[in-house]
Structure formats: structure tokens, C-alpha cells
Amino acid sequence: MANMTPKERVLAALDRKKLDRPPVVCFTQIATVDAMDAVKVYWPDAHTDPHKMATLAAAPSKVFGFECVRLPFCLTVEAEVGGCRVDLGKMDRTPMVKSHVFDESNIPDDLPADFMTKGRIPVVIEAVKIAKQEFGKELPIVAGTTGPFTIAGHLVGTENLLLWIITNPEAVVKALKLATKLERSYIGALAKAGADVIVMSDPSASTDMLSGEMFDEYAAPYIIESFKDAGNAKKVLHICGDTTLLLDHMIKTGVNGLSIEEKVSPEKAVQIVNGRAALVGNVGVVRPLLQGTTEDVLRDATRVKNAGFNLVGPGCGLAARVPKANIEALIKAVKG
């Protein structure tokens, strides 16, 4: 098993096979300033140039030893294609959605026919192809996408979307259907381009926002639908916050892996999931990775590994300023 490539190891881990050690990955945002310095490719350029995107996405595996290539670096690609204004940020700040597009009365039934050629969709697809060709033998290509509930929130305003669950559920469904159409085509194209793993992050569907029942009604069916054209790519669902009560609901979407944050106790997560899906995570990004010491990171990562997570890594997207030493401590804790 020691001879496995990182790609074989990651795919086996997502199939919940028994391994000598779990792979150490970052399935959420992976780039840091140290990685940028190493390959001389920086944000915001890397968001719009496929070669730069592929190069930066692979850098953390070369520089730190992560066992995957992960791109893009934000959750705004879909929102932008849907018509939102996006600020691409700066070297240490991720892009953000600056404005939503629709209100209750004007959510369209369909997307423009050429939406797959819009915004940065072609950039990400091209970057996946480049990454596949350059690194795809050894490393799994992990494409990050946004969950339909989160996209819908970008399109109409998350606060509006939540409020309409009570006051105007039809509008919620309409926004979700639009988001799902976009997402399903996008995921299909990413899989076709060579993505080995599709990670869908749906932060707005967390338990801070929705109850389990609301998740079943307004998130899960659209997640399932969005993954329909993923082909042979492994499917991973990432949801932020304390997902202890949501794990069962997440499993029911039929994904291969669940990526969760440190707000869930790792032992408890393993106990609840009980082999029904692979667990990915859940070392804290702010504490210990950003603000803690290497000892803190070593302690938490070892705990996650010993708890039995199938893949060990950050519980959420890395902040660009996470120190190199802490990432190295994370990787050392897993690889030894």
C-alpha cells in the first residue's frame, strides 16, 4: 500500500477501503500565500486564467504534500454565471458575491442557452483538463462546486431565500430549480473534463440556517439532481457548521463522501456515519490551522486520524494566510 499513488489512495479512501493510513487532502479551498509564492502565481489572476489556476491548484501538493489537486479557489463561479456581480478579491482574499440578481417576481424559468460559455465556467473546465494532463496520473483532480441552495441564495439574496421558505415557498423552489439546472450542467462538464472527485459545498444549507426537515425539502433533492451527470467522478458533499444532526440527511443524498467542520466531534461523526459514507475533514481552519501552534495542529489532526476519518484534512476552505508550518504539521500527523 505504501506504493499507492495519492490518486489511488484517495479514490480507495472514498470507497471506504481499509488502508495503512488515510490520505491527507484539502477538498475545500486549498491555495495559500506560501503556495502562491512557490509557483509565482497569485490571486486574483489565478481565478481567470486556466494555466495559472491549474498550476496554483497543484502547488500545495508539491510544496506541502497534500495528496490532491483542488480547484477553483472560490464559490462564486456559478453565481457569476447566474448574473451576480462578483469581486475577485486580492492576493489573500477570496472572491465574493457583491449583489444578487432576482427578486420574488422575476426569477426566470430557464438560463440563457449559452450559459456554459459564460463567466469563468470555461476557465475552470480548461483548468481541469490541464491539471488532468499534467498531474492526473499521480494526483486526483478535485473540482469544487457550489450547492444549489447556496447558489439560489446568491441569486436572490440568502436572507430572502430563507424568509421565503415561510412566506413564498414557490419562489424558493423556482430559484432552486434554476440553480440546479446550472449546477447539473456544470458538474457534468467538469466530470467530462477529467475531474476525479466533485466536491459540492453548500454552506447556506447548514444547521445554522435550516432544520433537518427544511434540508430534506429544500437542499437534498436539488443536490441529488445536480450530481446526476457526475458520471464516474466521486461525489463529496461539504457543509459547514455543526452538522452532527445533519449527517444522516447528508448520507441520504447518496454521495460517496461527507466533508465536515471541526464543530462536529470526530469520534461522534465516525460513530454516527458508521461506514455509510467516507468522512473527510475535520481539522479546524481558524483554530488550530490559522491561529494555533504546530503542536495544536498535530494534536487535532492526530485525533481526527485516530477517530477513523477516511480522509484527513482541513474542515473548511484554507484561509490564504494559514502558516506553512501548520500545514506541514497537519500532513506530518497523517503521513508520519
Binding site: 424568509l163 415561510i166 440556517m209 427544511m214
Partner: peptide, 13 residues
């Protein structure tokens, strides 16, 4: 956790 954000937002409104 009897209420989630949608109810809280509506109460606030």
C-alpha cells in the same frame, strides 16, 4: 433549535 433562521427572520420582520 425549535426555530431555525427562516422563523427568526420572519419574527424580526
Amino acid at each position: 433549535k425549535e426555530y431555525y433562521l427562516p422563523q427568526v427572520l420572519l419574527s424580526a420582520q
